[in-house]
Nucleic acid binder design. Structure first.
Length: 424
RNA sequence: GGACAGGUGGCCGAGUGGUUGAAGGCACCGGUCUCGAAAACCGGCAUACCGGUGAACCCGGUAUCGAGAGUUCGAAUCUCUCCCUGUCCGCCA
């Protein structure tokens, strides 16, 4: 969410930000509307507060007269009149603020300077690690997984629906091993506090991180409660300190959690749906950092490096892509995607998205810190990244580490958890 | 799920319709005292928004006693709804 001052004082910067996302044409009328509503709001506040001050004065005189045993009917009448005007103006104000608030919640974040202008085609590979193997004879993961009895797609579809996966035997154990490996590395080596979170959250949390109100149709909602299944542990982790003020000494604060993630993927039907590429429920270890505003740029580099470390341990070739403004998520100001190569499907798969949200989420969720020098509380900057999402990692492991004999080599970092060096 | 009891400033805790933004205490900050510290004493100490020149400081105003709605000239105080917490009972992994 943007500061109202952005609309009032830096509307050109706001427009420029929307233009870099390629969204100015669509949002320009909305921004104009916001500017108008801001003016209306301030005028109405002045009008209503003037009357409230008058009523407070009148009301006090009523009290004095009553104590003196005098009648105050004329003043009471005056106060009633003011009360009626106040009620009317308050209604207008509430309407204005409601519309203005809704607009502010639906405007995406402004991207940082180093983010390329344009859409997906302007995404830029900033570095690569490892060497993709030739895919000529590589089997796709759904064939390997089924052949080795690690994944049961049919029964997943039967008990839950398409896009729900059943892992079996060493496949199930692989999922558990990935969770342990990732949590151990982040908690032990990278200094994150390990958290275990609820996967059901309330509406306020979903608004805080930016999933709502704009993307409600992508979320699984509970039937009898105003609550949702989380699409990522980012939601509970970032909302952990909603409406709180942290001492600066606790920053940067780094949290990691495993969670299942639930996504309806409305409108994504038929796109990358084969095998494990796009599913409705998947597992992920998430990284979240709360930092001071002046450090969020370098903190994004650090967080991204933490996520990359897992790919290196899994010995999977990957590339780091800086997303262009038009491809950057709604709440993010700067995002790196980590893409791992899967020779079986012949594609780079997004397995992590590491973002700097600047103060966008902190404003929505009202997360502040008390500066060490004793100044007023300021909004923190929040960052998060997958570290990592399991299904495409599993796909890549199966495809990249498959052997001539049809088995799959297990990278050393993982085999200690899995208790096997080979899947066959 | 049922029955009670509660939700007041960073914390504790007064306050049941009229200078109560809110007594008192603790914590914190500044000062006096001291060689220094402690104690004692004095003073300060919420947030947001609107306006006064779009800075800082300052000044004026409004709002905020879990949230929302209502009664009233006037609500922390009365009424209703909701949320949360505690205790007991029931149920249950």
């Amino acid at each position: 969410m943007h500061d109202l001052r952005m609309v009032r004082e830096h509307i050109d910067a706001l427009r420029a930000g929307m233009r870099r996302r390629g969204a100015l044409d669509a949002l320009s009328p909305t921004i104009d509307r916001a500017a108008l509503l801001d003016k209306t709001r301030r005028d109405t506040i002045q009008a209503v507060e003037e009357r409230k001050a008058a009523r407070n004065g009148v009301t006090q005189q009523v009290g004095q007269r009553k104590r003196a045993g005098e009648s105050a009917e004329d003043l009471q009448q005056r106060s009633r009149e003011l009360g009626d005007e106040i009620a009317r103006l308050d209604r207008e104000l509430a309407q204005t603020e409601s519309e203005l608030g809704a607009i502010l919640l639906e405007l995406p974040n402004v991207t940082l300077d180093q983010v390329p202008v344009g859409g997906e085609e302007s995404n830029a590979v900033v570095r690569t690690w490892g060497t993709p193997r030739e895919g000529a004879r590589a089997q796709p993961h759904w064939e390997i997984g089924t052949r080795l009895g690690l994944i049961d797609f049919e029964r997943g579809a039967k008990i839950s629906g398409s896009g729900f996966i059943v892992f079996r035997r060493e496949g199930a154990r692989l999922v558990r091993s990935l969770m342990n490996l990732m949590l151990d590395v982040h908690a032990r080596d990278h200094g994150y506090e390990e958290i275990w979170v609820p996967v059901v959250v309330n509406r306020a949390s979903m608004i805080g991180t930016g999933q709502l109100p704009k993307f409600e149709e992508d979320m699984y909602a509970l039937k009898d409660e105003d609550a949702f299944l989380i699409p990522t542990a980012e939601v509970p982790l970032t909302n952990l300190y909603r409406d709180e003020i942290l001492p600066e000494s606790e920053l940067p604060k780094a949290l990691t959690a495993y969670s299942p993630c639930f996504r309806r993927e409305a409108g994504a039907a038929g796109k990358d749906t084969r095998g494990l590429l796009r599913v409705h429920e998947f597992d992920k270890v998430e990284l979240v950092r709360y930092v001071t505003p002046d450090t969020s740029g370098e903190q994004l580099e650090l967080l991204t490096a933490h996520a990359e470390r897992i790919l290196q341990l899994l010995e999977l070739p990957y590339r780091v892509v800086r997303l262009a403004a038009g491809d950057t998520g709604f709440a993010s100001a700067h995002t790196y995607d980590l893409e791992v190569y899967a020779p079986g499907v012949g594609k780079w798969l997004e397995v992590s998205s590491c973002s700097n949200f600047t103060d966008f989420q902190a404003r929505r969720a009202n997360i502040r810190y008390k500066p060490a020098d004793g100044g007023k509380p300021r909004f923190v900057h929040t960052l998060n990244g997958s570290g990592l999402a399991f299904p495409r990692i599993i796909a890549s492991i199966l495809e990249h580490h498959q052997q001539e004999d049809g088995s799959v080599r297990v990278p050393a970092a993982l085999s200690t958890y899995l208790g096997a060096e080979r899947l066959s």
